[in-house]
């Protein structure tokens, strides 16, 4: 079996997962489709570097993360993609909002999915890596080139933002 034929099988097996990850990271279906194709091409070209002792998903997920973060960095046009750690830490001190569980009970579960798509890149990316890709804080900090504490702060901020979105949408519904 040729390498390209073997790779087509891997493509069919992992396309959905790679696409799902890319879509979550980029928050755009067309961009995720392009990114997924590019990720598989990169994986094919660098296949000799793949360590077969490692799960394939872990390897291709890393390529996906790197490629998508690169795209997001280009999209941010030179600004710090993940903000400043100090500023984010200060934002944590803002008064707490209702717990997400209570809000979700009041809203539909789909509202949370929608709220995630509304998160800014700097909160959504670590959230996806942590809870979709099941990456550890250490892995995320390496992939995104930020400190471990910064990862933790961004995740808390992401959750706070989600609560704020859900509360806001709940209020709007109540008013209507």
């Amino acid at each position: 079996m040729t390498v390209s034929l073997a790779f087509e099988i891997l493509y069919k097996e992992y396309y959905v997962r790679v696409f799902g990850l890319a879509r979550r990271l980029l928050n755009s279906t067309p961009q995720a489709e392009d990114a997924t194709q590019e990720v598989f091409m990169r994986a094919y070209r660098n296949f000799k570097r793949y360590d077969s002792q490692q799960p394939f998903w872990q390897w291709i997920a890393t390529i996906t993360n790197n490629h998508c973060v690169d795209l997001l960095r280009k999209r941010s046009r030179g600004q710090k993609l993940f903000g400043d750690e100090e500023i984010e830490l200060e934002l944590l001190e803002s008064p707490g909002i209702h717990s997400l569980t209570a809000l979700i009970d009041a809203e539909s579960a789909n509202a949370l999915t929608e709220a995630i798509t509304k998160l800014p890149d700097k909160y959504r990316v670590p959230l996806v890596l942590a809870y979709f890709n099941e990456a550890t804080y250490e892995q995320i900090s390496t992939d995104l080139s930020i400190s471990r504490t910064h990862v933790g702060v961004l995740l808390v901020r992401a959750k706070q933002q989600l609560r704020a979105y859900l509360e806001d949408s709940g209020l709007k519904r109540a008013q209507s």
């Binding site: 799902g20 879509r23 717990s99 569980t101 999915t113 959230l127 809870y131 979709f132």
Partner: peptide
């Protein structure tokens, strides 16, 4: 519980 909700929301993606 909140974390679980987020995990579920992310994994019930239509991808």
């Amino acid at each position: 519980a909140e974390k679980q909700h987020i995990v579920i929301a992310l994994n019930t993606d239509d991808a």
